[in-house]
Design a protein around this nucleic acid. Structure first.
Ligand SMILES: [Mn+2]
Ligand SMILES: [Mn+2]
Ligand SMILES: [Mn+2]
Ligand SMILES: [Mn+2]
Lengths: 221, 221
DNA sequence: ATAATAATTTAGATTTGTCTAAAAATATTT
DNA sequence: AAATATTTTTAGACAAATCTAAATTATTAT
C-alpha cells in the first residue's frame, strides 16, 4: 500500500463518509465538507483518479474505487484507534478527541497502528460508537437504528451519536447518556416529536427531536 | 506560541542539536544533517530569520534565538515523550522508535502532550537516555561523561547511547547493556583503545573503542 | 425549446518547499 | 598577495495544494 499526502488522505476519507449516504459524491458536496473551493476539489479529483483511487468523469461526480475504499478504511482505522486512545488512556473528553485524531491519523506506520490496537485491547468502537476497522479493513456494519424510530418499550443500547459537538456532549452528560446506556422509549408527542425515555433506574425524562435525531441505538444487549 | 510547519520544525530541531556542539551552525553542516541541498538551507534560514527564530547574517552561519530554542525544546519534548510511549507501552525496540517519533513529534497539541506526559508518569529520559524537557522547556543537563573517559574502578551508570542504529542495539543486547546498567572500567589497552568492563555480577568483558565512544555514563547511582 | 440558474471545470496566480546551475563571497594554499 | 578551492547565496525552475475569476456544461423554470 502506497503512501498518500495528508491532503489526499483528508479528501479520500471525506469522500468515503459522503458516499455512505448517496453512493455518488458531487463537487460541491465535497467542497462544503472540506471547506474548500469547488475548483480545488476538481484539481484533486484528477489527481486521485490518476492514482486509480476513484471513479470520476467530468460533471458526473465521483466515488471511491475498491483501492480507494481500502485506503479510506486504513485512515478511519487510525483515526478511531487514536480517538479511543485519547479518551480511554489520556482522559480526553468526547468532544476533544476528534480534532487531535484528525492529525494523528496521518502518521501511517502500520506497525504503530497494529501495536496501538493491541495495546488498547482491540477495541471494536471509538468513543462516538463508530466501529473500528480491523487490520484487513473489515468493518462492523452494525444494524443500528435512530432513536426516533425505536418502537415503544423495546430495550436498546446507545451505540452511536452523530453530532460530535461540545454542546451535544453537555446535554448528554446532563441526561446521563453515554455510549452503552440502555434505553426504552415510553411516549412520543407528535406536536414537537419529543419523547419520554427511561434509562436504567433513572426516572423517565424527555428528549427533544433534535437530540433523538442524533442518537442511534442497537437492539438486544 | 505560534505553529510551525513540519519542515520548519525539522530545521529548527536539527539546528538545536548541531549548535549543542559548535554554538554556531553552518549551511553545509545543516544540509548534511537534513540531507538537503545548501540552497534549500539558505532559503529556509531567511524564512526562520524573518520569524525571529534565529540569528543569521549571510555567510556567517546561524544559531537559534531564545524563541527558537523554546520552539526546539517543544519539539524535542514531543519527540522524546513519543519515543518513551512507543518503547514502554507499545513495546517497540529501541531502534524502531526514532523513525515513528519523527512524525508524531509534529502533532503539536499542547494538551495532547501534557496528558501523554502525565499518562507516562512524567518520565525524565527517553529510551536512548536523553532527557525529556518539561512543560516549560526546562531540560536536565546531566553531567555525563563518555565511557572512554571514565576512570578505573569508578562506578557509573549508563545514561546515554549516541548511536541509535539496529547494529549497536544488537551488540549492546549481546553484552547486556541497557540504559541504567552499572559499570566499572577495569583495564584499557592503548593498542586499540579497547577496554575491559565489569557490569553488575557479570564476568568482565571487552568493549571496543568504537562502542565505548557511543556510551555515556553518569557517576554515583 | 429557450432562457435563466446552478454546478463544474479551466486558466492563471500564489505560497511553500524543494532543486540545479551559476555567481559571489570566503578560506586556503602556494 | 595571487591563485585556487570551498562555501554560500542567488536566480530561475518545478511540484503540490490552494485560490479567484472566467468559461463551460448541466439543470430547472418558463
Ligand atoms: Mn485529517
Ligand atoms: Mn469518532
Ligand atoms: Mn520530524
Ligand atoms: Mn531519542
Amino acid at each position: 500500500m502506497l503512501n498518500y499526502s495528508t491532503s489526499e488522505e483528508n479528501y479520500i476519507k471525506a469522500i468515503y463518509h459522503l458516499q455512505q449516504q448517496d453512493g455518488n459524491v458531487t463537487t460541491n458536496e465535497l467542497a462544503a465538507e472540506l471547506k474548500a473551493k469547488p475548483a480545488s476539489i476538481t484539481d484533486m479529483m484528477k489527481k486521485l483518479k490518476a492514482k486509480k483511487l476513484l471513479h470520476y468523469e467530468p460533471y458526473q461526480g465521483f466515488s471511491l474505487s475498491n483501492e480507494g475504499k481500502k485506503v479510506a478504511l486504513g485512515i478511519i482505522r487510525r483515526h478511531r484507534l487514536w480517538e479511543f486512545f485519547l479518551a480511554e488512556k489520556l482522559k480526553f473528553t468526547w468532544d476533544e478527541v476528534h480534532e487531535v485524531a484528525e492529525h494523528l491519523e496521518h502518521v501511517s506506520s502500520k506497525k504503530l497502528i497494529d501495536k496501538l490496537d493491541e495495546f488498547l485491547g482491540f477495541p471494536r468502537v471509538d468513543p462516538h460508537g463508530d466501529p473500528i476497522p480491523d487490520q484487513d479493513g473489515k468493518i462492523e456494519t452494525s444494524r443500528q437504528v435512530c432513536l426516533l424510530d425505536l418502537p415503544f418499550n423495546k430495550s436498546a443500547v446507545v451505540s452511536h451519536v452523530s453530532d460530535q459537538s461540545t454542546e451535544i456532549l453537555e446535554l448528554l452528560k446532563h441526561k446521563n447518556i453515554v455510549i452503552g446506556t440502555k434505553l426504552e422509549v415510553k411516549k412520543k408527542f407528535s406536536f414537537d416529536n419529543s419523547m419520554e425515555v427511561k434509562a436504567g433506574r433513572q426516572p423517565v425524562f424527555t428528549i427533544s427531536e433534535q437530540l433523538a435525531k442524533n442518537i442511534f441505538v442497537k437492539y438486544g444487549a
